[in-house]
Design a binder for these strands. Structure first.
Length: 467
RNA sequence: GCCGGGGUGGCCGAGCUUGGUCUAAGGCGCGGGACUGGAGAUCCCGUCCCCGCAAGGGGGCCCGGGUUCAAAUCCCGGCCCCGGCGCCA
């Protein structure tokens, strides 16, 4: 058994230094750890020896005749006193060492270093799918469509936030702001139906490919949440409830990872594929004024998540398979997007390699993050204690992987921008049809504007005139 | 929420009254070996974690404290599970 980060720290500390440097961390963590670790080992040896003496005396006492016991007990008490102070020292060092160890982000896969080239690169686009629709006014400020020839349009697409409230009138963030706070929302009618249809579609897609559908707990205790994320670094992003006894999940990934906490799995059990469906709660502290309007960046949203527990040697294959599912789902939604490899300075600290899916947003003239697909290797499984029993009864930490399938509300923003027509009508992706037709009141092919969209001579919307 | 019962190694399950050969019995599962043409049956060995090159040593019986030379075993606090009552979408 061995955790890859711990083994690498002890065997190839320079690899860990490089990882920290590329992620923008303080490299001296390595030396701090090394000195704490060797100090701990030294004291541990002494403590064990004293305990050995105590145990030896103790068993002598049980065999000694009554009149000889007094002296032995006195001797044992002396050893005990010595042990006490050394023990305190040991657990102090151990606590320091372990809390430092828990602050290390995951090791990074070699391919990431070679693709990203240098430490300042944020991401590298790998693949473009679909043909972006570009408003004429954005043509000259356009950067990188990956060589894809865009479809140029003369009318200016309405941004998702204005579509939601102005053109369609199917959301109310002002009222939500009043009753809950900013970054909350009400969704109504056709957009609420769309939300359900997207959820069902992603669930249907994954369950047909062997994923087990799971509705997980929405709250976790401290022990668990701090095992699945770097809690100290993330605590501002997490809601706490019940006087800090519980934490709302930021994604289904967290309770799904914890499902096998403290378990030993058999090889034949793996891979375990889960499709999680749950809301995600995020404080979005520090987001400032970014994406303040609409439902792009909100405190609560539904998400269908892919999660996998795999054998260590299989995880890189599974990483590509999860990405394959993601690409397949998004291709079927008929929204142009690209896949980027996220570079170390922008990667999640739990990930050894991470892809993001970025959808084209016509009203903004740029790609925006919609989904994220990571191989977390043994970072979470070490903290959660999830192992697999291998041939020869050897135990090894499993690998965990997670990937968004569909983050519902954010995906709706992409649909609102990409699938809108000049008159404000929104075309519903065809694959969602079967999940809507069961309901007489649900929309089928289109969501209609609440009035006539009036544009100026430059193609900009100036008014939605109600009938 | 109240009363009663309970949490032991991957799983099941003894031990707890009466603290000390508990080196945690036994079974199942799993791994290796013997036997076999092969499989089954049978037999042998192994199967929690940490330190150590090793010999060896230490820790571990839900979690955290305490008593004792010595705690799975006794005491206190907490969490969870099962049964009954209460409450309830």
């Amino acid at each position: 058994m061995s955790w890859s980060l711990l083994a690498t720290l002890r065997e190839r500390p320079d690899d860990v230094r490089r990882m920290l440097r590329w992620r923008g961390y303080d490299e001296s963590m390595v030396d701090q750890f090394m000195s704490l670790d060797s100090e701990w080992r030294g004291i541990k040896a002494k403590v064990d020896e004293l305990r050995h003496r105590r145990n030896a005396l103790s068993s002598q006492i049980s065999k000694a005749p009554p009149e000889a016991r007094g002296a032995l007990i006195e001797e044992a008490n002396k050893v005990l006193k010595e042990l006490d102070s050394l023990n305190a020292e040991l657990s102090r060092i151990e606590g320091e060492r372990d809390s430092l160890l828990r602050r290390f982000p995951n090791l990074i896969h070699e391919s990431v270093y070679s693709i990203c080239q240098n430490e300042s690169v944020e991401s590298v686009a790998l693949k473009y799918v679909g043909r972006p629709r570009v408003w004429r006014g954005y043509l000259n400020q356009l950067s990188g469509l990956g060589g894809v020839e865009p479809e140029v349009i003369d009318w200016q697409p309405v941004g998702h936030a204005d579509m939601l409230e102005g053109v369609l009138g199917l959301g109310d963030t002002a009222k939500a702001g009043e009753v809950a706070g900013s970054r909350f929302f009400y969704l109504f009618d056709d957009l609420a139906w769309l939300n359900l249809a997207l959820s069902l579609y992603a669930i249907d897609f994954l369950t047909q490919r062997g994923f087990r559908l799971v509705m997980p707990p929405h709250m976790l205790n401290y022990d668990v949440i701090s095992s699945v994320i770097d809690f100290e670094a993330f605590k501002d992003a997490i809601y706490s409830v019940d006087n800090g006894q519980l934490y709302l999940i930021g994604t289904a990934e967290h309770p799904l990872a914890a499902l096998y906490r403290g378990s030993e799995l058999l090889e034949k059990d793996l891979p375990i594929l889960l499709a999680g469906f749950s809301p995600s709660y995020r404080r979005e502290a520090g987001a400032g004024n970014r994406d303040l309007k609409g439902i792009f960046r909100v405190h609560q949203f539904y998400k269908v998540e892919q999660f996998a527990f795999t054998l260590p040697e299989d995880s890189w294959n599974w990483h590509e398979k999860l990405l394959g599912n993601l690409v397949e789902i998004w291709s079927s939604l008929e929204i142009p997007f690209r896949i980027v490899l996220v570079c170390p300075r922008e990667m999640s600290r739990t990930a050894a390699k991470q892809y993001d899916l970025e959808a084209w947003m016509p009203a903004q003239g740029m790609f925006r993050e919609m989904a994220s697909c990571s191989n977390v290797t043994d970072w979470q499984s070490y903290r959660l204690g999830i192992r697999v029993i291998r041939k020869g009864m050897k135990r090894e930490y499993v690998h965990t992987l997670n990937s968004t399938a569909i983050a519902i509300e954010r995906t709706i923003t992409a649909i609102l921008e990409n699938n809108q027509e000049e008159d404000g009508t929104v075309k519903i992706p065809k694959v969602l049809n079967k999940y809507l037709e069961a309901f007489p009141k649900a929309p089928r092919d289109y969501i209609h504007p609440r009035g006539k969209v009036i544009r100026d001579s430059n193609g900009r919307v100036i008014e939605v005139r109600r009938a």
